[in-house]
């Protein structure tokens, strides 16, 4: 019996608490009855019950692809999950420009780049380019932002040098390729370069990419991390509010819209 306040949840298949999960995976053996049993055993070993191997297909001569349904007895207490979510209303395009004009009084300078060997500019382009992403304008469109998209494969030292030269208020580092954790090594190296140049702590350092989250960015020494689904306006709001905090115009503890926590 759950204590008061607890909220026990399990996966929902077609009725509450049935714990139904779908899995798919490949085993490196030819399709056979033995292979199917191996798949079922593998799923049972993970703690599932009522294992149903729904599909077993010859993906290649010596590989079999499985789709499996099974039940899990596991649960989580939803009341104990602690993930702060932003509740303050995000400023729109015009309001944010007005805020910069009134409170900063000059253009906010932002540099963005895919650094190291990364050549995938899709993310940084979506955030910075005029066009933006999903109907949300990119930073280049904001009259009170001066946004520079340095493109792909920018060396970390070059990015730091440009940040110094342009008196940047924020630097956006985009990392898409994550094979062998190359994004983490590269991101750490950027932070080292920023420290060497004496930039660290003087401007906002943002990390973005499909496999990036706020927690990872903080671990790597960035001020904030933005993952998949981030809109340019999220980044724009974050940059402006963190600049205002640095300028002492907003309390440092204030949480603002678009701000990862």
């Amino acid at each position: 019996m759950a204590k008061p306040g607890k909220q026990i949840i399990r996966p929902y298949g077609d009725r509450r608490d049935d714990g139904m999960v779908q899995l798919s995976f490949t085993l490196p053996v030819p399709l056979s009855e033995k292979a199917k049993e191996a798949a079922a055993q593998f799923v049972r070993k993970m703690g599932f019950s009522d294992v149903k191997v729904a599909a077993s297909e010859r993906a290649a001569d010596s590989y079999t692809f499985f789709v499996v349904y099974a039940r899990s007895g596991m649960y989580v207490d939803y009341s104990e999950i602690d993930v702060p979510e932003v509740v303050v209303k995000k400023l729109g395009f015009d309001d944010l420009n007005k805020l910069i004009e009134d409170q900063v009084g000059r253009k906010v300078v932002v540099l963005g780049a895919c650094t190291g060997t990364d050549s995938h500019t899709v993310g940084i382009d979506a955030i910075l380019n005029m066009k933006g992403f999903a109907g949300d304008y990119g930073l280049e469109r904001y009259p009170w932002f001066e946004a520079h998209n340095l493109g792909s494969q920018v060396p970390n030292d070059e990015l730091v040098r440009r940040a110094v030269a342009t008196h940047a208020d924020a630097v956006l580092v985009s990392q898409v390729v994550t094979q062998r954790d190359v994004h983490k090594d590269n991101a750490r190296q950027f932070i080292e370069e920023a420290k060497k140049a004496g930039l660290y702590g003087k401007l906002s350092l943002l990390l973005g990419g499909p496999r990036v989250d706020h927690k990872l960015a903080l671990e790597l020494g960035f001020d904030a991390g933005f993952g998949a689904g981030t809109k340019p306006s999220d980044v724009a709001n974050y940059i402006v509010h963190s600049l205002l905090k640095r300028l002492g115009k907003e309390p440092s503890g204030q949480h603002n819209p678009g701000e990862p926590q």
């Binding site: 995976f25 297909e57 993906a59």
Partner: peptide, 16 residues
């Protein structure tokens, strides 16, 4: 596509 380099099974499913 939006996640990782294709798994062996991803290719199989697409080809099928």
């Amino acid at each position: 596509e939006a996640m990782h380099t294709p798994l062996l099974a991803d290719r199989y499913v697409a080809l099928k």
